[in-house]
Simulated scan of single mutants.
Amino acid sequence: MEKNFHYLKTLKTKHKLTHKKLLLDAFNKAKIENGFNSKSHVTQFLSDYIQEDCGEPYGERILRNKYNDIISNKNEVIELRQFAAESLRNYLGYEKDVIVIDKKELKPEYSSFFVNHKMKLLSVFGIIIILLILIPITINTQRWMVWNDNHYTEVEFDLKKYNANQIKAFNEARILNFTKINPDCETQFFKENGLENLWYGKNHNKTLDFFTSAGLHPHTGKTLKPITVYMIKKYICPDYK
């Protein structure tokens, strides 16, 4: 075990890193360093690390599915989001080598693009025209809401009072159930059936905000992640069991 750990700590790449290699090496290192016995524990750990490293969510299910494709010897291309690949490289301590997917990039034939997609482009232009007609009608009949400190509030559509990116389509569930809170050790993090009661995401200041429902962060627009025991112990209640 110590020999394998030393190998992972000192390994440095010299050429191009494929996404497949990054994922395999990250899995091996996480297993050895943390003593994980299941893929679920490894993927949760790596998902949390990516979130902490770059501020972007990358689900554990995605990591687990891609890892399963590798170990089942499928000849599929393993392609991670670029920010996830770079975070895994940081986790492994690899040098700033070029990260590539394990296939050759295909160059589009721009010269024939418009010819081959003529009907699709015409359809898109038609949809745009229809939207330009319907949007003014929708604005006058649609209900709207804005984020107000720690909850959503219904408002009138008023671009003089609010920025366009502040105004969102009215959602009754968001009005009733979506609230930002400051959790502590007394917070009920999970329901009796084990489902999450709390979601989290980083704000523009790179600090964590916690919410009572799933959805998008009101300020960044990024998908919130369900709370985990790892995040509870690290950021909310170190003595949580």
Rank of each mutant, 00 (worst) to 15 (best):
M1E: 12
N4E: 11
H6S: 12
Y7I: 14
Y7P: 03
T10H: 12
K12G: 04
H19F: 11
L24T: 15
L24G: 07
A26W: 09
A26P: 02
S38L: 08
Q44F: 09
F45N: 00
L46W: 02
D48W: 04
Q51P: 05
C54N: 10
E60W: 04
L63Y: 03
K66C: 10
K66S: 08
N68S: 09
I70M: 04
N73D: 14
K74A: 13
E76I: 01
E79M: 10
E79Q: 08
A84Q: 05
G93Q: 05
D97I: 12
V98N: 13
I99F: 12
I101V: 15
L106M: 12
S112Y: 12
K118N: 10
K120T: 10
I127S: 00
I130A: 02
L132Q: 08
I133P: 00
P136K: 00
M145R: 06
N148W: 11
V155M: 05
F157E: 00
K160P: 04
Y162Q: 01
A164W: 13
I167A: 01
I167Y: 02
K168R: 13
A169H: 13
I175H: 00
I181G: 03
I181D: 03
D184H: 05
F190M: 09
L195I: 12
G201W: 14
K202T: 05
L208D: 06
D209Y: 05
S213K: 12
A214R: 12
L216C: 02
H217T: 03
K222Y: 15
T223R: 15
I227F: 02
K234V: 11
Y235Q: 06
I236F: 01
P238H: 08
Y240P: 02
Y240G: 03
